[in-house]
Amino acid sequence: MRRMMLNGSLVLTAVVTVALCSFSWAQATKAEEDRRLGMESHIGKLTGHAAAAQGTYRRYCVGCHGVLGDGEGENAQWLDPKPRNFTLGIFKCRSTTTGTLPLDSDLFDTIGRGLDSSNMPSWNPLSSQERADLAAYVKHFSARWVTEKPGTPIEIPKKPEVTAERLKAGQEVFQRVECWKCHGPTGMGNGPSAATLTDDQNRPILPYNFHDGNRFKCGTTDEDLYRIFMTGLDGTPMPSWSDNIKPDEAWDLVFYLRTLQPMKSKAKEIARQIGLKPGAPSAAPASAPQQ
């Protein structure tokens, strides 16, 4: 009997200690996060203040991204892809090099644009001030912004004229660096690796199907497309190619990728004229290349 009581009190002490520790840890993180409420964002002439976005975040974002910004809002369980966990400070849409923090303007643009093929809506009905405040608020969830500076934005050379030669060169880049392994030989998102891909949190993720949409998560313009594969989508298997693809080649690839998409474009028109077919260049078979 006494022994049992002793055991009991030991267990109780242990429980209380653990509870207290985690409580004070939670307190500490909360306090630390509150300190970060002073975080600002700077987009052109706009200055966003994290503290000013508390109400807006609660009204619009909390159901998905959660009170703690951990992506565990009440709706997260029903969504695929899952809402971003802001505490990690890892973002898909950046103009900065892979592995680095995005610019404030990247977050601002993402909030206004939304992420296609996900439940993240475009928040452009909110005023630019509200979006700037929200960008600062998104930052305040992660300690990364205290210790690190945003990365350097990659340079995008002026877009050249699209030509038949560039389309063919782009097709070869697609072949050479093996975009097809994931995106499929004709860009339909059905490459040999496609079925096995997972993101950083081990959740299955599909490569983009170029035949399916005319928008990307991270933008719509040719410059956006250039930026997407040269910076990569951090947190996903979609890597940055800036080490493997030279700037001029990158433009060739942009033009080639445009020929795979459903909407009209000059690139697509030229491809039709020269009879350029998606897939491996003439010599190789158009079916999935052997690994």
């Binding site: 609660r58 009204r59 619009y60 909390v62 159901g63 998905c64 709706n75 029903w78 969504l79 439940n119 809506p121 928040w123 009905p125 909110l126």
Partner: peptide, 22 residues
């Protein structure tokens, strides 16, 4: 359907805000 709270579209339910109007 979209995983949104009432407040995303409604200033106060049922009045729409700008996001809801869009």
């Amino acid at each position: 359907k979209y995983g949104l709270r009432c407040s995303a579209c409604h200033e106060a339910w049922p009045m729409l805000n700008y996001f809801g109007q869009k």
